[in-house]
Amino acid sequence: MNHNTKEKYKRLPGKSGFIILYSSKLWMGSDHLLLVHSVAGVEKYNRFYYRDIQSIITSKTITGKIWNVIIGVLLGIFLLLATTTQSGWSGFNTVMAAGFFLWLTIHLWRGPTCNTFLQTAIHTKKLSSLNRTKNTKKSMDRLKIVIEKTQGKLSPEVFKENVLKQPMDSGLRGTTAVYTPAKREPRHETGKIHALLFALLIIDAFFIIPTFFLTHVSFTIFSTIISLAVIITVIIALVKQAGSTIPGAIQKMTWTSMVFICISLILGYGFSLTMAFENMEVAYNQWELFKRVSKISPLDNTFMMGLHIYSLCGSFLIGIPGLVLLKHYWRNKRRASIE
């Protein structure tokens, strides 16, 4: 018994993931669509036979726009720093600005982002490789031809007729009643941890303001403690919001905070390394180094100024809208419970 005849697959446009850690691609076979998930050299396959595919739905998301804003802000900061600083820092800031410019160009060229779902009678699968509208359109057009070749065409009139005939609770036998990727009931989440996260971000921003005029180790200690609390809170919030009733806008805000924190950490780490190299005599004494960093005023160090402005803007831009969204969420919930 050997049915291992080589299937001829054709690659569909679109790819998701990070080059090394994870990637997801779609391939078209003779009678099925192959979804290939690759994690560090190990590939996992999902097959969707053309005869079983009920629908493919794609919807535009704002993720791309959020990323464009984040990259644009970073590009602006580094451009500003590159034009205001002298000596070695200017070169570093120019290189960073060029990097962010390249990233932004690639992002804009790839086009708006989207989420794509494929539905069969028994499951709904997110096609993560189809995450840009440009590629998704090309792939859906190509898939439409082969699926219609297998199943035939469904006109809107026939669709309307059949939908009217369908009972709402038709379940898995026949059609899926409601198009939702998750079959589980969403978990109820109060959003208290999200409120704490956004509040901590605002508090963090308030601790940054005095450092423009005063330099003291106590400010740095408080700021570090709050930053640590923010990191812990954002992780808990991300875990809690998964599969919960928290609205999409708040979930996106939490993810944005995560990205903001990651960038802050990377920049902060880069700054600490530079300081360690510049103060080699105390590089092995963490406390001494900490005290030296605390004594530097943002007015004397342009990179620190940029970092402070970034943290200040980011904390307020995420914290305040986050709290406003939460307030709306709580108000709506209260109204719903009264009704």
Binding site: S55, T58, S59, E148, L154, F159
Partner: peptide, 16 residues
């Protein structure tokens, strides 16, 4: 008001 595209096929109305 979210933008979406839905490609629906006859398998949606096929009995298992």
């Amino acid at each position: 008001d979210g933008f979406l595209r839905a490609d629906v096929y006859p398998a949606l109305f096929k009995e298992l």
